[in-house]
Amino acid sequence: MPLSKQREFISPRPDDDWATIVKRVLPDQDPETAMSQLKSWNLHLFARQPPGEFLGSDVIFIEGPRDGKEAPSFFGIEVEVS
């Protein structure tokens, strides 16, 4: 059974900061726009102490939430996958 496509993420490296990750995962974008996007996808890293600093175990999303397809439902209702 192949794995369905889910939101892509990376784990930080010990010397990472926001700028190094922007450079690594969004190299073709305007750095300022890319930085803003990256932060908007990772607000969870600001909603805890220390805000905005990486911890080794963090999940860092490198894309926004996914739009669209339907997930299986066992409540008998259709649900949207974000």
Partner: peptide, 18 residues
């Protein structure tokens, strides 16, 4: 719940102070 540019929903949870 946060609506992104592509129309998809993401989210974040804040404590009472924030």
């Amino acid at each position: 719940a946060i609506r992104y540019e592509n129309g998809a929903l993401g989210n974040v949870t804040l404590n009472a102070k924030c």
